[in-house]
């Protein structure tokens, strides 16, 4: 039982790792918390659902559609919204991203309604191993996320783009004097972030039914994961996501499962009270 919950938690955590990484990257490079992360995840799930069930594409192809759709949405919202607000206080950006979240969620609702949907994939029996039940979806999720994380790591650590992103995150004006184009980096960051969130949306849609609230359900865990790891720290976000995923699933041992969602909230609250910089380093949290 405990081992099973741990395993489920590990997979939930891996699922959270992608959007948490996305959140932390936007915060690091563009200096605001993107409250539209949940709605972007919803958009990804729906984009893949349309590609999968309406256009008849295979699931990997649908996932690619989702990643591209959300990446383009990210670039577009940067162009139309965030770039125009970049000189305002961070609360304006925060509230604007909340507004964007309403827009995206309701675009999905407008075209596809409130009904719960699911992908057109064959139902497979869970595998049994040493008394553990392992779903096919869990293996898909774990593999996809691990590949994405390795690629993201290589991109951030060992590519010119990653170097430029870290430079802008560290000191935008210094990066500009060294010829790093902030606009280009912002757009590429949104493309990367959008792809990560879109894929997470597909994985979320495999895990549960797709409805307009699907992303909102992950909103608090995503923030909890990113804050736990220290906003702005990519490695921290992944570690934070694993901790939150495991804590959420294991909480079933202690509290009624109805209250699972309160776990992330409690983690954030306690963490901010006692170790306000996150587990790994982070920017100042206090005013």
């Amino acid at each position: 039982m405990v081992a099973q919950l741990f395993l489920n938690g590990l997979v939930t955590g891996l699922l959270l790792a992608l959007p948490a990484l996305a959140l932390t990257l936007v915060f690091g490079v563009l200096k605001f918390a993107n409250f539209a992360v949940g709605a972007m995840l919803t958009l990804g799930a729906y984009a893949a659902w349309v590609a999968n069930t309406q256009l008849g594409l295979s699931l990997p192809a649908s996932a690619a559609v989702a990643a591209i759709t959300v990446a383009l949405t990210g670039i577009l919202s940067d162009q139309l919204v965030f770039e125009r607000l970049k000189n305002r206080d961070s609360i304006s950006l925060l509230v604007a991203s909340m507004g964007l979240s309403l827009v995206l969620e309701n675009i999905c609702r407008f075209f596809l309604g409130n009904a719960s949907r699911s992908f057109d994939v064959p139902i497979s029996r869970p595998m049994r191993w040493e008394g553990l039940r392992i779903n096919q979806e869990q293996i898909t999720t774990a593999l996809t996320v691990c590949v994405c994380l390795v690629l993201a790591h290589l991109l951030l650590r060992h590519s010119p783009l990653g170097r430029a992103m870290r430079a802008v995150a560290d000191n935008p004006s210094l990066a500009a004097t060294r010829g790093v184009d902030r606009r280009l980096i912002a757009r590429l960051t949104w493309a990367l972030v959008g792809a990560l969130i879109g894929l997470a949306g597909v994985l979320a849609g495999l895990d549960r039914s797709i409805d307009p609230q699907i992303g909102w359900n992950y909103q608090i865990p995503i923030f909890a994961a990113a804050i736990l790891g220290g906003l702005g720290s990519p490695v921290g976000a992944v570690v934070g996501a694993l901790v939150i995923g495991i804590a959420e699933e294991m909480s079933a041992l202690l509290i009624p499962t109805n209250y699972r969602q309160i776990v992330s909230f409690t983690v954030i609250l306690v963490l901010l009270l006692f170790r306000s910089n996150g587990l790994l380093s982070a920017k100042a949290v206090r005013k």
Binding site: F27, F32, A33, F35, S90, I91, L94, Q219, I220, F223, A224, I227, L231, Q261, I262, S264, F265, I268, L269, L272, S276, A284, V285, R286, K287
Partner: peptide, 16 residues
């Protein structure tokens, strides 16, 4: 005392 991004997510969490 928290910076606004953190206050925002805490208050969302409270509402939920």
């Amino acid at each position: 005392r928290l910076e606004e991004n953190y206050l925002a997510i805490i208050t969302i969490g409270f509402g939920e």
